[in-house]
Design a protein around this nucleic acid. Structure first.
Lengths: 147, 147
DNA sequence: CCAAGGTTGTCAACATGTTGTCAAACTGCC
DNA sequence: GGCAGTTTGACAACATGTTGACAACCTTGG
């Protein structure tokens, strides 16, 4: 098949990613409001939970595709709010290790449950195969840009 | 098939949308730098070009899924930079009509060409059908949230 | 006509992302 | 050991998005 038609579809995907990103941030803020948490903070909790062990700020940043400065600001504020714990890093005097506090763990698990129901509603009428294709395509596009 | 597996894939898509959104903004900024334009401004140019006729600020905002205040700030700055023209709206004394200036049209068409080549590179190895599935899924998710 | 309610522009405060710069800490190589 | 290059934290400036509030404008129904 000719590639002539791919450009326009690709452009539409780009625009839809922007729009959906905005909607997802709003939705995350709405769901997190009950626990005094925003989408950005939720993502930090998720990154730490996924990692399974304490991480440095640059590690979190790399795993999320953000700059370390953006993550540092969030992490500092979240520690102030008792969502995170700082521990000295035996391997590096400056780069402290960040982990979830008990409060952070509690909030994240409640958000996880809330999000699960929401994800189910959102993905109603979309097949598993379609979701997997979508994820694969988005990852390949990210990969092509990152290179 | 059970829906048990859909939640995790859905969550990964959400995270990938965030990540890709950031990459796309960076890439747009990089491509637009040559013409002194950012991703956000590019999107305004695109919305006006797509509409085909002068639009008000709230119309642009609705078409892009942004708030009118965010669009207003961009539009004001872009008019200052001679990318846009303001015209009085015969139907509404406050809501001026915004259109592309000659400079705006020129910049947009050059960006369009530049973006076309980039889109082709990015979508190498992805089939037309996969792209269309992806667009459809993203639109359905947006629709489910917007509701 | 006019009062009520929605839309628009404007201003302000804030959240979250970027880039750039600097010094301190680490790493690797000679 | 020590020097060069990289990584990290801190700070600042800026871009882009949000919400909230207010007054001006428009529309509609009685």
């Amino acid at each position: 098949m000719s590639d002539a038609q791919k450009g326009p579809v690709f452009t539409e995907i780009v625009l839809e990613v922007f729009k959906l990103g905005g909607l997802l941030v709003s939705e995350g803020d709405r769901m997190g409001a009950e626990y005094g948490i925003t989408s950005a903070r939720w993502k930090i909790l998720g990154a730490l939970s996924l990692a399974g062990e304490p991480q440095t700020v640059p590690q979190i940043a790399r795993s999320m595709g953000l700059t370390r400065q953006a993550v540092q600001r969030l992490v500092d504020a979240m520690q102030e709010d008792d969502l995170l714990l700082f521990q000295d890093n035996p391997g590096h005097k400056r780069a402290r290790l960040i982990s979830l506090s008990d409060l952070g763990k509690t909030v994240y698990s409640k958000l996880y449950e809330k999000q699960s129901g929401w994800a189910k509603t959102c993905s109603a009428g979309i097949t598993q195969a379609e979701l997997e294709t979508t994820l694969s395509v988005l990852e390949r596009i990210s990969g092509a840009i990152d290179r």
